[in-house]
Simulated assay, not measured.
Amino acid sequence: MEVEGLCSFRKLIASLVSPNHDDVPPLTCILLKSSTSLTFVFFTPSACGMLGYINFEEIRKRDEKNLLDGYLDTEVDWIPAMKGARLKDLPTFLRTTNPSDAMFNYNIVKVNTAMHAKGVILNTFEDLESEVLDAIRAKYSNVYSIGPLSMLFKQLSNSNTQLESIDLNLWKEDNKCLEWLDKRDRSSVVYVNFGSLVIMTPKQLSEFAWGLVNSKYHFLWVIRPNLVHNNNNNGNGKLSDEYVNVIERCERGLVLGWCQQEKVLCHASIGGFLTYCGWNSTLESICEGVPMACWPFFTEQQTNSFYACKKWGIGMEIECDVKREQVEGLVRELMEGQKGKEIKVYKLEGLI
Score class of each variant (00 low, 15 high):
residue 100 S to M: 12
residue 67 L to M: 06
residue 208 F to K: 10
residue 50 M to R: 02
residue 28 T to C: 15
residue 320 C to Q: 14
residue 163 L to H: 02
residue 347 K to C: 07
residue 158 N to H: 11
residue 191 Y to Q: 09
residue 86 R to C: 11
residue 157 S to A: 15
residue 204 Q to G: 03
residue 242 E to Y: 06
residue 170 L to D: 13
residue 155 Q to D: 15
residue 302 Q to E: 10
residue 80 P to D: 04
residue 102 A to C: 12
residue 50 M to G: 03
residue 151 M to L: 15
residue 350 G to Q: 07
residue 258 W to D: 04
residue 326 Q to Y: 08
residue 210 W to F: 14
residue 34 S to Q: 09
residue 6 L to G: 13
residue 198 V to R: 04
residue 213 V to C: 10
residue 324 R to M: 01
residue 173 E to W: 03
residue 197 L to Y: 08
residue 228 V to F: 09
residue 316 M to C: 06
residue 77 D to H: 11
residue 235 G to H: 13
residue 126 E to I: 12
residue 161 T to V: 12
residue 331 V to Y: 07
residue 15 S to Q: 07
residue 232 N to I: 12
residue 115 M to P: 05
residue 90 L to V: 05
residue 233 N to S: 14
residue 148 P to Q: 09
residue 155 Q to C: 15
residue 194 F to C: 04
residue 8 S to I: 14
residue 156 L to A: 13
residue 254 L to A: 12
residue 278 G to C: 06
residue 223 I to V: 12
residue 323 K to W: 09
residue 93 F to V: 13
residue 105 N to T: 04
residue 150 S to N: 15
residue 176 K to T: 14
residue 232 N to C: 09
residue 166 I to T: 02
residue 37 S to E: 13
residue 63 D to Q: 10
residue 36 T to P: 04
residue 287 C to L: 12
residue 309 C to H: 03
residue 138 A to V: 00
residue 54 I to P: 00
residue 182 D to F: 08
residue 281 S to N: 01
residue 161 T to W: 09
residue 178 L to T: 04
residue 151 M to A: 15
residue 150 S to F: 03
residue 184 R to H: 07
residue 7 C to D: 13
residue 31 L to Q: 02
residue 54 I to Y: 02
residue 39 T to R: 13
residue 39 T to A: 10
residue 154 K to R: 13
residue 316 M to P: 01
residue 13 I to T: 10
residue 115 M to T: 10
residue 211 G to L: 02
residue 98 N to C: 08
residue 13 I to D: 02
residue 325 E to K: 11
residue 218 H to I: 07
residue 277 C to D: 04
residue 182 D to T: 11
residue 174 D to H: 01
residue 103 M to I: 14
residue 76 V to M: 03
residue 55 N to W: 09
residue 20 N to F: 14
residue 99 P to A: 05
residue 24 V to R: 09
residue 102 A to N: 13
residue 164 E to A: 13
residue 109 V to I: 14
residue 285 S to Q: 01
residue 90 L to N: 03
